[in-house]
């Protein structure tokens, strides 16, 4: 059995085991798994470790012991010990992961760009009739290029940040629930406004950059690129 198949089977059996975990322990295990997932551990070993942690937790539940008594109170330190002692991710797996993220992102955004460029509607209205004057060229704009780079980068950074800060974010969320709203609202409003301003700025710039056409390509070349990118994601998965 190859590593990819083994990983998928493990993931499925782990998802089944997940259902036996109590609500309280699920919250702790989720933080640990999210934290470990963004570390240098390979995906296959990650699923093996997840299986061990699930087995440890279920056994503790059966003995009516808390997860804290089994692992100790410092879950982050426990995960850091695991990361330090587990085998590192093979270089090829790291390359494939990056290739998968980039190919998937470019493919998705390329399809969205084509749909919103109006080409499909134009093709249905004019192109299907077999008009010799129909322009099959699709413009590739600066807006598409910059938004693809920004969205891919932000998504990747966000996933890593959430993973690395999994324990702190859970503590923060707990504080938000327990602290009086008057104390947490000002901070939340400021962060909300900053996020809103960043999003608005991004959309305004993208719309402006969409007016700048870098080059035009035949629609079939775009479809071919999307298919090629899909095949790349299948290889990298």
């Amino acid at each position: 059995m190859n590593a990819s198949k083994q990983k998928e089977l493990l993931r499925k059996s782990n998802n089944k085991l997940d259902k036996q975990i109590s609500k309280e322990n699920t919250a702790i295990l989720t933080d640990m798994v999210v934290y470990l997932r963004v570390s240098r551990i390979s995906e296959l070993q990650m699923e093996l470790i997840r299986q061990d942690l699930l087995e440890m937790t279920i056994a503790a539940q059966e003995r009516s012991e808390s997860l804290e008594s089994v692992i100790g109170g410092d879950y982050k330190a426990f995960c850091d010990e695991i990361i330090a002692n587990a085998g590192p991710k093979p270089v090829m797996e790291s390359i494939k992961e990056s290739v998968y993220i980039i190919a998937m992102s470019v493919m998705t955004l390329l399809i969205i760009d084509i749909i919103f460029s109006g080409f499909p509607v134009r093709f249905l209205k004019e192109g299907l009739g077999g008009s010799p004057d129909f322009d099959f060229n699709v413009p590739i704009t600066l807006g598409f290029v910059t938004s693809t780079v920004v969205i891919t980068l932000v998504a990747w950074l966000l996933i890593n940040w959430v993973g690395k800060k999994a324990f702190a974010l859970s503590r923060g969320a707990e504080e938000l629930r327990t602290k009086p709203k008057s104390k947490t609202y000002p901070k939340r409003i400021v962060w909300g406004m900053l996020a809103g301003a960043a999003l608005a700025g991004f959309f305004i710039l993208t719309v402006k950059f969409n007016e700048i056409v870098l080059f035009s390509v035949h629609a079939l070349a775009v479809i071919g690129t999307a298919v090629a990118l899909y095949l790349v994601t299948r290889w990298a998965k």
């Binding site: 100790g72 010990e81 002692n85």
Partner: peptide, 15 residues
């Protein structure tokens, strides 16, 4: 000594 204390060491010994 809890299971959590020895788990990372078992990983290393296995590796």
């Amino acid at each position: 000594i809890s299971e959590g204390t020895i788990y990372p060491l078992l990983l290393r010994l296995e590796k």
